[in-house]
Write a protein that binds this DNA or RNA. Structure first.
Length: 152
DNA sequence: GCCAACGTTGGC
DNA sequence: GCCAACGTTGGC
């Protein structure tokens, strides 16, 4: 049976990595996610080609600034093995990695961002994980409807 | 810079 | 296995 398509949202602080950086790079390894729920999404559910909303957080106007897509299957995050990396995890070994990631590829930058403010006011997005109280997930799933609203 | 909300850690 | 303390996230 055909698996239903999945839609995603990833957060990034634009001062660290923005949609413009992704546009320039075309593709990037989504390193540094150190949250088990987010890891599980990447490791277990993301598939190459899945559409991704690119969200800017901790910036003057938080919101969705672009579209990306999943560009690889999951593989171990190399930064967990690197003692010089801020994401180094001494408990991880190459035989037993802890953290996984996928590659994310640029699709497009939105001419106008869909701001957090706009999303909060859209009744169709009431159940969106992003808008739930206190949510801090950096990788989250979306329904097709939630993905499509930001396209209109 | 503040602070609420959350996840993780570690003592017991 | 509980739960208080702590660190981090992220909007404002």
């Amino acid at each position: 049976m055909e698996e239903s398509p999945k839609y995603w949202l990833v957060k990034s602080e634009p001062s660290t990595y923005s949609i413009d950086d992704l546009k320039k790079d075309k593709k990037t390894a989504w390193t540094g996610v150190r949250n088990y729920t987010a890891r599980n999404f990447m490791r277990d559910s993301m598939r190459p080609g899945d559409p991704v909303l690119f969200y800017h957080s901790s910036c003057p106007v938080p919101g969705v600034y672009g579209i990306a897509k999943v560009a690889s299957k999951a593989y171990p995050d190399p930064t967990q093995f690197d003692p010089k990396s801020p994401y180094y995890d001494p408990k991880a070994t190459k035989e037993k990695p802890i953290w996984y990631l996928v590659d994310i590829a640029f699709v497009k930058k939105l001419e106008q961002p869909v701001t957090l403010e706009q999303m909060k006011q859209d009744p169709r997005l009431k159940d969106m994980t992003l808008l739930q109280r206190g949510n801090r997930l950096s990788v989250m799933g979306l329904s097709k409807e939630e993905f499509d609203v930001t396209q209109s």
